Simulated assay, not measured.
Amino acid sequence: MANFNLNLFFLIAIATFAVSAYGIDDKCGACNAIAEELERGLLNEKPRNHLDMRHRLDSKGQRQGKLIDYRVSDLRVVELLDGLCEKMQDYTLEKVDSSRQVWIKVNNWDNLQTNRQEARAYSKDISTFCGRLLEENEDELAESIKKGSIKVGEVSKVLCQELGRYCSQTSSNRKAVDEEDVSDREL
């Protein structure tokens, strides 16, 4: 019996490694999930004052330096992107039908009705994919955020079509249909 359990453990470990070794099959779907999480960050932003960088006094006692609008600051970019990929560890793949899977956010892993070990492997895969996506597109994404060209509702278009080039125009339309299918299934 112990030998059977050990073999079963190795079989599951190999299967989990095989799934993660091949990475993300649907890069467009994964990118859209990352864009959705970034969009949540944009929606949850609180209004902020300008950044006051006027720390020096001139000979007349007047403060010198810059007053930077928070919306175009590097601080805003850092706050939006910092921890984004760690948040992606709350996502996993859910099978919609025999030919389609979608990324969903898991609020409670105990309520997950699929194989938890496999679901955790998927969450690590998307987190790793997020890291690569941000690394490859960080400068352009930061500039887009600073310029204000990334707005709520357009994050997926900018991140997944224009910058990452993982999605075409037609696949973003499919994403909207997928979101309707799983909007009630967020666990």
Results as ranks from 00 to 15, higher is better:
Asp139Lys: 10
Asn7Asp: 15
Glu138Ile: 01
Thr16Asn: 13
Ala176Phe: 01
Asp181Val: 15
Gly65Gln: 06
Glu36Tyr: 08
Glu179Leu: 14
Asn49Ser: 15
Arg132Gln: 13
Met53Lys: 12
Ser144Trp: 04
Ser144Lys: 06
Gly41Ala: 12
Glu39Gly: 02
Glu186Asn: 06
Ala21Asp: 10
Gln169Ser: 15
Val78Glu: 14
Leu80Arg: 04
Asp58Trp: 01
Ser127His: 03
Ile14Asn: 07
Gln113Phe: 03
Asp178Arg: 09
Cys85Lys: 04
Ala121Gly: 02
Lys175Glu: 14
Tyr22Asn: 12
Glu136Ser: 11
Gln113Val: 06
Gly65Leu: 02
Glu140Trp: 03
Arg76Lys: 15
Ser127Ala: 12
Val102Asn: 13
Asp181Pro: 00
Ala13Lys: 13
Asn7Leu: 15
Glu86Pro: 00
Arg116Phe: 00
Gln101Lys: 15
His50Val: 00
Thr128Trp: 03
Lys66Gln: 10
Ser127Lys: 03
Arg185Gly: 08
Ser183Trp: 10
Tyr22Pro: 00
Glu140Phe: 04
Asp125Gly: 06
Glu135Pro: 00
Ala21Cys: 02
Asn5Ser: 12
Leu133Tyr: 04
Tyr91Arg: 02
Asp82Ile: 01
Ser20Tyr: 10
Gly65Glu: 03
Leu38Phe: 07
Asp74Gly: 11
Asp184Trp: 12
Lys124Ser: 10
Glu180Ser: 09
Ala142Trp: 06
Arg63Cys: 05
Cys167Arg: 04
Leu133Trp: 02
Asp69Glu: 14
Leu6Met: 12
Glu118His: 04
Glu180Tyr: 11
Gly23His: 05
Asn44Leu: 14
Ser73Gly: 06
Ser149Val: 10
Glu138Cys: 00
Asn107Trp: 07
Arg76Trp: 10
Phe10Lys: 15
Arg174Asp: 13
Arg54Trp: 06
Phe129Cys: 05
Ile14Tyr: 11
Val177Asn: 07
Arg116Ser: 11
Ala15Gly: 15
Phe4Tyr: 14
Ser171Glu: 14
Leu57Gly: 05
Thr114Lys: 07
Ala2Val: 13
Ala121Val: 12
Glu186Cys: 09
Ser73Ala: 02
Gly164Phe: 08
Cys167Ile: 05
Thr128Arg: 13
Arg56Gly: 07
Asn5Thr: 11
Leu133Asp: 07
Gln101Asn: 13
Glu143Gly: 07
Gly131His: 05
Arg48Asn: 11
Arg40His: 07
Gly164Leu: 07
Arg40Pro: 00
Ala35Asp: 04
Ala35Ser: 14
Thr92Gln: 06
Gln117His: 02
Ser149Thr: 15
